[in-house]
Design a binder for these strands. Structure first.
Lengths: 69, 69
DNA sequence: GTGATAGTTGTCATGTATGGCAACCAATAT
DNA sequence: ATATTGGTTGCCATACATGACAACTATCAC
């Protein structure tokens, strides 16, 4: 698995978990205290997020970090 | 759990996995293509690593990302 | 003591994540 | 046609992760 693929996969996983909660990128982003634009870039695998950003998203989704992989 | 605690916990987990393989910070760092200094800071929770850095460490340790959490 | 190994800490340059705002596209509804 | 909603993309400033090198401490061996 390349790094690009890894990021894309993680983004997809976040998207899946978000859709399970039936919330928009905007709403999830707001709970994480950042812009919907950032969430879009994250879900599409365009940014190499830090572990704390993942942690924030995890919290907002009431998920475990394990669930992201 | 605070963000600081989260980073510290992750660093500790990396250290554990590294020690299970009986390799030094320097050796692990070399396999990840960075300096032992960086590995030291990561294990002590001083840096908010990106997900790709975690991915590299995971690879070098032959571990699954899940194992880090 | 000298040397080797393991880890920590400081500083620097470069790249990029983050946070912010705006403009845009697509789809749907009014 | 207009408005709304969900998502994407561009740009900007700031903060910080990364990669690199050096200096330092501590421990253990010779």
């Amino acid at each position: 698995m390349t790094e690009k693929e890894f990021l894309a996969g993680l983004g997809l996983k976040i998207k899946e978990l978000r859709l399970q909660k039936n919330i928009s990128q905007k709403d999830l982003a707001m709970e994480c205290n950042f812009e919907k634009a950032s969430m879009s870039r994250i879900e599409s695998g365009k940014t190499n997020i830090t572990i704390l950003t993942l942690y924030k998203i995890m919290h907002a989704l009431n998920a475990d970090v394990k669930d992201f992989f």
